[in-house]
Design a protein around this nucleic acid. Structure first.
Lengths: 228, 228
DNA sequence: CAGTCATATGACCGGTCAGTCACACGATAT
DNA sequence: ATATCGTGTGACTGACCGGTCATATGACTG
């Protein structure tokens, strides 16, 4: 974590350093990101940086924590706004949508997260995970098992495979968004259609015959189904 | 491409250089991979490397081309061994399985491909794509549309979303394999279950009532990374 | 006034890198 | 024997890196 000195800094300077660091880590992976470049752009001495942070990794962690906090807050907020009878797909859609929207509201922080995902230095990644804690990942599995009990999901289907699919798709959506291969306006319908396929793929066979799949496929949106 | 000098080299030496380069690019991303390290390990002078290749990028391309050729051959072979009445899922399973198996038979070349997928330097990636040409990519879409016509796939479902899911899952499987988070013995069942969910998610609603469709799969899949 | 403390500085260190170049060597041709 | 050619070499260049440290500044204390 940053030193006391850093927090004693005038707001402006602290912001400047933080912003430039975010830009740097968004534009480059950890090892290619350069402290020298940050201090040069900030117009401060290299040594000053070492009065504020223990080193490159410390600065990196500080920035990552900023991003992680924002992301968790956004997801928590979106999910908690759902009614208690929201279905599995409502929840998945709400949580993922909130997460993907960050690519527009906080593009650089979002890119930093995606860069971490691409990181090849395993030691670095584990050092990060050590201090950043849990990945809200098994949440899906919990929700899924709960949906199986409710009879919304075919117990025959491998929950692991379902989780894997969901995770693969949402991660990929995030990367494509961060890299500009998709816009949010493209990603959200894609997410909805994807969840729709997953929904059809998971529901019990018996239920499929009846028209409706019962609860919920609409994911919190009241608008039309979007076919494309 | 390599110089004539490189191809005039005694087989042993050429192999040594090639192998060490493969190791280097498998262990590090392009920018972190080091020519200096390669020549040191090979016991040759730095200058010699520049007699064989125009530079780092040239060497990289040469290695990538080796890997691409092997991959295409493996997939072509697997798909061509299928009967003409093989279903969409047979084909997808056969092609993807063949592709994933390369993670075991050519682990380092496989890792290099995965590293390229993670590359953050867009300019580098586009320079590579420029010369590596097409990614057997829209094959999925072609097969999918053919399956729709046959009535195996619900025409209501977004083919783009289906393609996206398939691509996201197979790419992720490849990465997890390359990084050792999954073994082939874990990845193949996961692939089959995933395709099964996709199958259920795509088939026409009417058909869903009947038991059928089922798991005729056992192999198969297709397509490789579809990065664009 | 002197002393102390938090803060700021940038030259400097040891390291790594891709790429270059003047030179060396041996074989073949003239 | 002289010239040319293909090949090999490794010291060197210039650039950049993260991190250190002796030194400077200025505010506050006594």
């Amino acid at each position: 974590m940053p030193t006391r000195t850093f927090f004693n800094l005038p707001e402006d300077k602290r912001r400047l350093i933080t912003d430039l660091a975010i830009e740097e880590f968004a534009a480059h992976t950890y090892h290619k990101a350069s402290l020298s470049r940050i201090v040069a752009r900030a117009g401060i001495a290299k040594g000053s940086m070492y009065q504020y942070f223990a080193g490159k990794f410390d600065l990196y962690l500080y920035i990552l924590e900023l991003g992680a906090r924002i992301k968790l807050e956004a997801i928590d907020k979106a999910v908690s706004e759902l009614g208690p009878e929201a279905t599995l797909y409502d929840r998945l859609m709400a949580a993922t949508e909130a997460s993907l929207k960050l690519a527009e509201t906080h593009p650089r922080l979002y890119a930093i997260g995606m860069n971490l995902l691409r990181e090849t230095d395993k030691k670095l990644v584990s050092r990060v995970m050590e201090r950043l804690g849990p990945k809200g990942d098994n949440v899906f599995l919990d929700w899924l098992q709960w949906a199986v009990k409710k009879g919304d999901v075919d117990p025959e289907v491998s929950p692991l495979a379902a989780t894997y699919m969901f995770s693969a798709v949402t991660t990929r959506l995030g990367q494509d968004l961060a890299d500009g291969r998709l816009t949010l306006a493209q990603a959200l319908p894609l997410l909805r259609q994807t969840l729709d396929i997953l929904h059809r793929g998971l529901r019990p066979r018996a239920e499929a015959a009846s028209g409706g799949a019962g609860r919920a496929d609409e994911t919190g949106e009241s608008d039309k189904t979007d076919r494309e």
